[in-house]
Simulated assay, not measured.
Amino acid sequence: MRILAILLTAIAALPVQSHEFWIEPLAYQVDIDGTIRGELTNGQEFEGSQLAFLPQRFARFSVAAGMRQSNIRNRVGARPALDIAPLAEGLNVISYQSRISTISYAEWEKFLAFAEHKDFADIEAIHDARGLPRTGFSEGYWRFAKTLIGVGNAIGRDFRSGLAIEFVALDNPYTDDLSNGLRVQLYYLDDLRPDAQVELFEKAPDGTVEITLHRTDADGIATLPVKAGHSYLVDAVVLREPNPELIGDTDIQWETLWAALTFGVPE
């Protein structure tokens, strides 16, 4: 219990500026008799702090391959949090859904900077029209993360796993020709999400990171330029007014849903 308390304290102390959350595998491709291992990571610019396996912090953590699916299990407090045998040969898709967390804004400028960075138009007018204070208000946020692991021949397709906001890779990064880019399709609830900002983080073999912005088309598809030997984090966010039930339970004024997808491109 003492170790668990220390882990929870460390997570609570993470800076609010640490926005993105993603699953970062130790290897994006493994042998069929190998092990899928990866870190749950919270940070910025594709660098951050690694989080332990704490079931009370997530509502779902699962792996799917072909027609098979299984919940991910590990020892409480273990790192890396993802440490499993492959479910099957082919493309293994790992999905994660957090429970809600909250942050409070003491400075209006920080909320405005966040809203501008994530491309939320007219947020100042909308916030004021709702009669919300400009300081001392709270945001609840959810993390919906996926990663694609190529096992053995890596054959297979990504698919909708039922996350509230979710990227689906329309190309397999381990088997398809990516000379024209890799296509991802963004879903929000039961709909496609057109004309949405997509942030692409590209990590080179030497660890340097380049960030570019892209947009989805009318079908919610963004075509992303990728390079052999690099790894990628794709990020998109929805900002919405919470439903009354959620406001009553958590005392939040805004709600954000974060989608993340990670994958590597072979040499």
Rank of each mutant, 00 (worst) to 15 (best):
A113I: 10
K110F: 06
V93S: 02
E139D: 12
G150S: 09
A106C: 06
S98D: 00
A169H: 08
E109K: 13
L163E: 02
I94Y: 02
D158N: 12
K118S: 04
N153G: 09
F114T: 04
R130A: 15
D158F: 11
A154Y: 06
F137K: 01
R134S: 03
G131H: 08
W108H: 12
F120L: 08
R99C: 02
A164W: 06
A121L: 12
G90R: 05
V151P: 00
P173R: 09
A164V: 12
E109R: 13
F159H: 14
V168N: 04
K146F: 05
H127P: 05
T135A: 14
I94L: 15
R143L: 00
L170N: 09
H117G: 13
R99G: 02
S98E: 01
G140N: 00
T147H: 04
S104Y: 06
W108Q: 06
I100W: 00
I155W: 08
Y141N: 00
F114A: 07
G156Q: 07
F137E: 01
R157I: 10
E109N: 13
P133W: 08
L132Q: 10
A129T: 08
Y141L: 01
K118P: 01
G131Y: 10
S98Y: 02
D128L: 15
L170H: 09
A145D: 05
I149P: 01
I149F: 11
S161W: 04
L170P: 05
L148D: 04
W142G: 01
Q97T: 07
F159T: 12
L132S: 07
F114N: 03
G162S: 07
L112Y: 04
K118H: 13
E139A: 06
L132A: 07
T102R: 03
I94D: 00
Y105K: 01
L91E: 04
A125M: 12
I100L: 03
V93C: 05
G150Y: 08
F159S: 12
E139Q: 13
I94N: 01
K118Y: 06
D119Q: 14
R130Q: 15
F120A: 05
I165D: 02
N172M: 12
I149W: 09
A125D: 15
G90L: 07
A125V: 13
N172C: 12
I103C: 07
I155P: 03
L112E: 12
S161Y: 04
I126W: 04
H117I: 06
D171Y: 09
R143F: 00
I165S: 02
P133T: 15
L163T: 03
Q97A: 13
D158I: 09
R130C: 08
N172F: 10
K110S: 13
I100P: 00
I103A: 14
G140W: 00
P173F: 09
A106K: 11
K118A: 05
V93D: 01
A164H: 09
E107K: 10
A169W: 06
V168F: 05
G152L: 11
E109L: 11
N153A: 15
A154R: 07
A129C: 07
A129Q: 14
A125R: 14
P173N: 12
N172L: 12
E139N: 11
A154K: 05
E166Y: 08
A113G: 12
I155T: 13
S98K: 01
R157T: 15
R157M: 10
G90F: 07
R160N: 14
K146H: 06
